[in-house]
C-alpha cells in the first residue's frame, strides 16, 4: 500500500503540505538575497554611471520586453488557475492549466532568445568574446550595463527553465500521483513560479523602463 506522505517524517498529508509550502517560502527568502545582491550591484553602478546606463537601456527592445512581461503575467494567471482547480479537485482542468503555464514559460524563453540573438547580431553582447560595437556616448560603461543585463536576465531565465522542467516532471508523473501529493506539488511550484514572475516584474522596469 502506498503511504499518503512522501517523507517518512510526516504522519499526515496535511502536515506535509504545510511543511512543503513553508520550505518553499524559506527558499524564496534565500532567492531574494541572491537577486537582491545582484540588483544592489546594478543600483550601485546605475548611480555611478546614470547617463551611460540610460543611453544603453534605450538599445534594449521595449516591444519584446513588454510582450514578455505580458506573457509571464499571463502564465502566473494560468498557475493561479491550476491552484484553484487543484483545490477544487478538478484534476484534468488543473493539468491543462499547468501545461498552459509551462507553455507560456517556453514562449517567454523563446522571445528572450530572439532578443538575445538580436543583441548578439547588433554587437551589444559583450560576452563569450563577442565584439562589443556601440556608437552611443561612453561605450565603456554601456558595456558594463550590457554585462549586467546579460547576467541578470540569464539568471532569471535559468530560474524559469528550472520551473518549466519541474512542471514538466509534475505533469509526466500526474497520472501516477496520489491526490494529496498532486495538491502539495502544485502548491509548492505555484509559489516558486509566482516568485520568478515577480523577479521579472522588478527586472523589467529597472532594465527597460528607467530613463526611457
Amino acid at each position: 500500500m502506498k503511504s499518503p506522505t512522501t517523507s517518512i517524517a510526516f504522519d499526515r498529508p496535511a502536515r506535509e503540505t504545510a511543511a512543503d509550502s513553508f520550505a518553499m517560502w524559506v527558499l524564496i527568502g534565500s532567492e531574494v538575497m541572491l537577486f537582491g545582491a545582484i540588483l544592489l550591484v546594478f543600483m550601485f553602478a546605475r548611480l555611478s554611471y546614470g547617463d551611460a546606463f540610460a543611453g544603453a537601456a534605450k538599445h534594449l527592445s521595449l516591444p519584446l520586453g513588454t510582450a514578455n512581461t505580458v506573457v509571464l503575467i499571463t502564465s502566473s494567471f494560468a498557475m493561479a488557475l491550476a491552484h484553484m482547480y487543484t483545490a477544487a479537485r478538478r484534476w484534468r482542468a488543473a493539468g491543462w492549466a499547468l501545461a498552459a503555464t509551462a507553455l507560456l514559460g517556453v514562449v517567454f524563453l523563446a522571445i528572450k532568445a530572439t532578443e538575445y540573438a538580436r543583441e548578439f547580431s547588433e554587437g551589444l553582447a559583450p560576452v563569450l568574446g563577442a565584439p562589443f560595437i556601440y556608437k552611443g556616448p561612453d561605450p565603456v560603461h554601456a558595456e558594463f550595463f550590457f554585462g549586467l543585463y546579460f547576467a541578470m536576465t540569464s539568471l532569471h531565465a535559468l530560474h524559469l527553465i528550472c520551473g518549466v522542467i519541474v512542471i514538466g516532471g509534475i505533469l509526466a508523473l500526474w497520472p501516477r500521483t496520489i491526490e494529496a501529493s498532486r495538491f502539495r506539488r502544485v502548491q509548492a511550484i505555484g509559489l516558486y513560479w509566482h516568485f520568478v514572475d515577480i523577479v521579472w516584474v522588478f527586472l523589467f522596469p529597472v532594465l527597460y523602463l528607467i530613463n526611457r
Binding site: A37, I38, V127, V140, H141, F144, G147, F150
Partner: peptide, 28 residues
C-alpha cells in the same frame, strides 16, 4: 549563502566572459 553565490557568479562571469563588474578599468 546566496550572496556568496552572487559574488562568485560575477567573478566567473568576469573571468570567463569579460564582464567588468569588479574591474576598475571597465568602471567596476
Amino acid at each position: 549563502t546566496p550572496v556568496l553565490a552572487a559574488s562568485l557568479i560575477l567573478i566567473v562571469l568576469e573571468r570567463v566572459f569579460g564582464i567588468g563588474i569588479f574591474n576598475p578599468d571597465l568602471g567596476g
